[in-house]
């Protein structure tokens, strides 16, 4: 099947879609002046604030910026440790 794909050139994503996705990603950072360092700082402070009250998995925590239709979102994914 893979060979078939290679022969007929259907395995690659269309380059226009690649362009669009890359642009979306780069523009999120162009538009909001949030550096990776600032995201790290935010992450550290969030961990500090939340772990006082909830047992969270600090290593699994992610803070990212994503692009929505109307807003760009600051998304924090914070896994909570199960007690049992």
């Amino acid at each position: 099947m893979k060979l078939f794909g290679v022969l007929f050139g259907r395995t690659k994503t269309k380059s226009s879609q690649v362009a669009k996705e890359r642009l979306k990603l780069v523009l999120v950072h162009d538009r909001i002046k949030v550096s990776p360092e600032l995201l790290d700082t935010l992450k550290g402070e969030l961990i500090g604030a939340i772990s006082k009250h909830i047992d969270i998995d600090q290593a699994g925590m992610e803070v990212t910026i994503t692009r929505g239709d109307k807003f760009d979102k600051l998304v924090a994914n914070i896994p909570i440790r199960r007690s049992r």
């Binding site: 380059s15 226009s16 669009k20 642009l23």
Partner: peptide, 15 residues
């Protein structure tokens, strides 16, 4: 655009 190698109008407008 037709063969998917250039962003089309809708792509650019979406961005």
């Amino acid at each position: 655009v037709k063969r998917g190698d250039m962003m089309d109008t809708a792509d650019v407008l979406e961005i």
